[in-house]
Nucleic acid binder design. Sequence first.
DNA 1: AGGACGCCGATCGCATGCAATCCATGCCTG
DNA 2: CAGGCATGGATTGCATGCGATCGGCGTCCT
Lengths: 223, 223
Amino acid sequence: MTQVTPVAPPPGPAASRETAYAVLREQISAGRLAPGTWLREAALAAELGFSRTPVREALRTLAAEGLVELVHNRGARVVPWTPTDVDETYRLRALLEGEAAGLAARRATAEQVEQMARAQERYERSIDAGAPAVERAGCNDAFHASVVAASGSNRLPVLLSVITSAPLVARAIGSYTADDLRRSVLQHRDVLTAVQQRDEALAVAAMRSHILAARYVAIAGVS
Amino acid sequence: MTQVTPVAPPPGPAASRETAYAVLREQISAGRLAPGTWLREAALAAELGFSRTPVREALRTLAAEGLVELVHNRGARVVPWTPTDVDETYRLRALLEGEAAGLAARRATAEQVEQMARAQERYERSIDAGAPAVERAGCNDAFHASVVAASGSNRLPVLLSVITSAPLVARAIGSYTADDLRRSVLQHRDVLTAVQQRDEALAVAAMRSHILAARYVAIAGVS
DNA sequence: AGGACGCCGATCGCATGCAATCCATGCCTG
DNA sequence: CAGGCATGGATTGCATGCGATCGGCGTCCT
């Protein structure tokens, strides 16, 4: 079986469950745990140094997000990502994040717009500096998160977390060409400008086209 | 504390967890467990006749769906539904179910279209027969579910289950006027026709307007 | 009297044990 | 030799116990 990273004993409340969740999610989405791999509670608990309970709860969370599939008395199996899945995910992201951008344009506070602008600045700097893919991906995530936060919706973050596989996006960003990166930056800027100008239609359209365009790179990443 | 229905010992695998989940979800969404109520694992376990483990997992699922809020060392608190929440939920449903209807128009199989037609027939019959609200709501759900199924998407059902509170919808349908019911039936027919005619634009628009219109009744139901 | 500190109870987080269930393997039978 | 069946092992589902942590309340000090 593929080895999962052994981790140090963590502090804080609910730390074991969250650590198990974070480790598994990272390993699965990064592809280190191949699709089809069986994840056994006891084995994971032993490797992570926890008991079965937190591992079990982490697996249930992952199952709710669709990353693994629970089979009674068999264990949890990593579900495979087909190009169709990625396509579907990105289309839904475009729908939901487009809505988020539109809401942000309508009702973001000055503070939230400021947050978006800072995130965008960091994103541009990380690209100009030729930062490693994981850092660029983090800055990209931060910008998207700032838009969702600026939407003021309580449910959009939940829905997006269900369908957005961060490491999948990271892998896609890692394989961006120079042109892809430039386009990504400029599309982010369009979204930012739209929100600053309270241009709802542009905000929706810019975010939608940004994600629908990124879709192709992401699809290529899994096929 | 509000009493939860004591239930008989259930059969089958994972029965305790699923029963606890079903009971709690029903009680919460129907309003028998008032918003703000604290749900304690030990107390629920005692009332339901299970141990804390399945209750605990049920609560985590409910928290993931946003029905309750977990607070460390305090318990789970029933999250209140404000008119704003209902509005937001219905807008997102309109977005997602509109997408579902569009996809259905594009790629539903003959079998799936047949399913939709049957569900619609049952809905119309239940209304003509003056069936009780809970049955009308069930038929309504069945139609919407048939559209989502016809979309062929694996993720739309998951996303919709996260934001759709069935009993909330049921309560709204219970307070429909005769005109509301007629409108609902006719809008369903528009969706069905659109899918049959492979008219994607109409499918999206009809479903969206159907849900956005129903929104006002639902909002009135919680305020 | 007002505020801060410390103790105590309540509650969750995690560990572990037991029982039920399912799959696979090997044997027996036709 | 093929098919069905019984048995054993592996795995999850659930129960329960213990420790950690947080909130509430009383008390003491200022």
